[in-house]
Design a protein around this nucleic acid. Structure first.
Length: 262
DNA sequence: TTATATGTTCGATA
DNA sequence: TTATCGAACATATA
């Protein structure tokens, strides 16, 4: 479920589901240990009998601090999600469960297992060790221009890179490039500073609106381009220019040809 | 059966 | 050394 807006919505869900509740036990349900980047011992040590006191989000990365100081880091990959439940039966694709003292259980579900669960010292330490940029919403326009204006990569590829600004994913990149009328394969160094600033501004606007409307994947505001993000779809403003699919940076990419030219 | 899917990482190549 | 590219990861659905 996870680009920046969805992770922000998940952060709020996590807070309402888990904050200030004592953790009674943990359950591990991923036999291949793909999503656990910390050992079961380390997770138990840091989490059992403690409680979460605050959360933080950087781009698509969610962090929660325990009252014992350590931070839990959650990443949702392509298909990660959280679900509060009380039944005996596990929600489908559950990989991990927090059992709380009050009987609530919080499942980390992840069909494709691209997600991550681990204990870290702090969000800042994680950022430094993994070359993760600051959250997209806090990025300064001049910094954005400085980081992009000399690169030769396709603009879409650069937008998906989390190194300098974190949070843009595949549909948001397409959304923003459509809004700004930029072809995804356009090399960064051929785009004016003014246009780059417009791209940043639009990305932030899209993200804020998606958060405000409580957007979940497959359920976007009507005016979003993502609703037409499939081959041959007709956007109402461009009835004579059906949506075209291509691959940019290894990702499926959708454009309206008459609006986004190379 | 083949292609595609909300993401990231790592090895190869330029 | 740095920048970029492409494959790989795991699983379901069209």
């Amino acid at each position: 479920m996870p680009e920046l807006p969805e992770v922000e919505i998940m952060r709020r869900y996590f807070e309402s589901a888990a904050l200030n509740k004592k953790i009674a036990a943990l359950e591990f349900h991923d036999p291949l240990y793909k999503v656990f980047k910390s050992s079961t011992e380390e997770l138990n040590e840091a989490l059992v009998a403690s409680q979460f006191i605050k959360t933080e989000r950087i781009g698509k990365y969610l962090f929660a601090q325990t009252n014992r100081g350590k931070w839990l880091h959650l990443h949702f990959g392509m298909t990660g999600d959280l679900e509060l439940f009380r039944s005996e039966e596990l929600p489908k694709y559950t990989r991990f469960v927090f059992q709380f003292e009050d009987g609530d259980k919080l499942a980390f579900k992840d069909l494709r297992k691209f997600g991550v669960i681990q204990i870290v010292e702090s969000p800042e330490a994680y950022q430094a060790n993994n070359t993760l940029g600051d959250d997209l919403l806090t990025i300064d326009p001049q910094y954005f221009v400085d980081k992009l204006s000399k690169r030769k990569v396709a603009i879409k590829t650069a937008l998906l890179d989390q190194k300098y600004y974190a949070g843009i994913g595949n549909w948001i990149a397409d959304e923003v490039l459509f809004n700004c009328g930029v072809h995804p394969k356009k090399p960064c160094n051929e785009i004016s500073s003014t246009k780059l600033k417009e791209i940043l501004k639009d990305a932030q606007t899209v993200v804020l609106e998606a958060i405000k409307k409580d957007t979940h994947y497959g359920d976007f505001p009507q005016n979003f381009f993502v609703n037409y993000r499939k081959e041959k779809a007709l956007h109402p403003n461009h009835p004579n220019s059906p949506v075209e699919r291509m691959v940019v940076g290894g990702r499926g990419t959708f454009i309206v040809p008459e609006k986004q030219k190379l």
